[in-house]
Design a protein around this nucleic acid. Structure first.
Length: 281
DNA sequence: ATTAATGTTCAGAA
DNA sequence: TTTCTGAACATTAA
């Protein structure tokens, strides 16, 4: 599901096709699903974006942000199953919105597709965007976290380290899948209280975050069994072929070779880890 | 045919 | 203050 590497892949996929172009049309697709959350109403968005240039497309944690020349920001949050596409969608029945651009090029629209419809689309004023995407609501981006910052945020709490990694107010961009992968690379047990990690482990964690997320971006994210995640051209990611522990319960650990990968539940979500390599529990 | 599981975020409770 | 729980939703596997 779209976490940092998937959202980064989406942004890289559409950026060169969108930046510098004017929005000539914004509209709701006629699908018969319940409407996904959009604010303000479609008609108000239309009024505010028509004829406006997209200056930049950026990723903020797990969100895609279109910065407009008017100062407004259109923010798409894919949540579970949201996608942004230049090309044909996985199916027509879950297409939600279209944004069409000026000029004639290979691609002239981006579509928002969302099977479950838990995603959100919001047009913020510059001030609102600053507030909603600012440090009050969102920790530093996972790719920008320093070892010192990891030390500070871990020191502060006794929550299990896996749960801490998922807290977007602590660090932006890590979700359930990559949290398990990161802790395996760092050889840290997912249930250890964050404030019991020693400096050596903080360093390992910090490096594992960089390694796993950059690797996953290189492979264009993970497309899981349900096949939901796709890049902007409706192609699967490939990082699922490289997963070390996620959804690999009972399979051999890539590090130690033992069939020691197990699944536990933390904060009502699945966690996967190697009982052999990640022992400091 | 029902039921559980899936993962992200937020509101509201503990 | 900090941490936890349930709801929102669509689809599939059991």
């Amino acid at each position: 599901m779209p976490e940092l590497p998937e959202v980064e892949t989406m942004v890289r996929g559409i950026r060169s096709h969108v930046e510098g172009r004017k929005i000539v049309h914004f509209g709701k697709c006629r699908c018969r699903c319940r409407p996904m959350a959009i604010r303000p109403a479609v008609s108000r968005i239309q009024r505010r974006v028509k004829g406006i240039e997209v200056l930049a497309v950026k990723r903020v944690a797990k969100r895609i942000v279109f910065s407009l020349s008017s100062g407004d920001c259109l923010v798409f949050e894919p949540r579970m199953t949201g996608l942004i596409l230049l090309d044909d969608p996985p199916d027509r029945s879950h297409l939600r919105f279209e944004m069409r651009f000026s000029g004639r090029r290979e691609f002239n629209s981006v579509w928002i597709w969302d099977r479950r419809g838990l995603g959100t689309l919001t047009l913020f004023t510059a001030r609102e965007a600053e507030q909603k995407l600012g440090p009050t609501n969102l920790g530093p981006d996972a790719l920008l976290m320093t070892t010192a910052q990891w030390g500070e945020c871990c020191f502060r709490t006794a929550r299990p380290i896996k749960v801490l990694l998922l807290d977007q107010k602590v660090v932006g961009g890590i979700g359930n899948l990559y949290a398990s992968e990161i802790l395996h690379v760092a050889t840290i047990h997912p249930a250890v209280p964050a404030n019991t990690l020693n400096p050596r482990q903080i360093k390992l964690l910090s490096e594992a975050v960089q390694l796993v997320l950059k690797e996953a971006i290189k492979y264009e994210g993970s497309t899981l069994g349900d096949g939901t995640y796709r890049n902007a051209l409706n192609q699967s990611g490939r990082y699922q072929n490289v997963h070390r522990v996620y959804k690999r319960e009972g399979e051999p650990c890539p590090t130690c070779g033992a069939r020691s990968i197990c699944r536990i539940v933390q904060a009502q979500r699945s966690t996967f880890y190697c009982a052999n390599c990640q022992q400091n529990g």
